[in-house]
Amino acid sequence: MIKLIISTILIVLGLIVVITAAVGNYRFAYVLNRMQVGSTADTLGASLVISGLIVYSGFSLISLKLVMMIVFLWVANPVASHFLAKTEIIENEDILDECEVVRHDSI
């Protein structure tokens, strides 16, 4: 019974985060800002839902594979979104209309 409550809370929280990302995808106007909300879904939402599933399935082969899944998502998703951001910045000619540039380095 306690397992049910814990896993339900985790899955519902994860669903809320994923839905927020979908809503934010429509509310934000610019790609880079959308990407920030999307990365929230990728990291926090997905791992919350998957950890809810881990709590349900207990200590078994499925949960081991799900842990591998979280590790893979956390390693691969930042690389993908970094590449996407680079593409956008190289591609967009009017990037300065969307965001200001601040320098803290010595060059």
Binding site: V23, G24, F28, I95, E100, V101, V102, H104
Partner: peptide, 17 residues
Amino acid sequence: IAFKQDIEIQPQIVFFE
């Protein structure tokens, strides 16, 4: 921020070392 009524954000690109 995503659920606010009117979104007021100032996106920035920061270079640092």
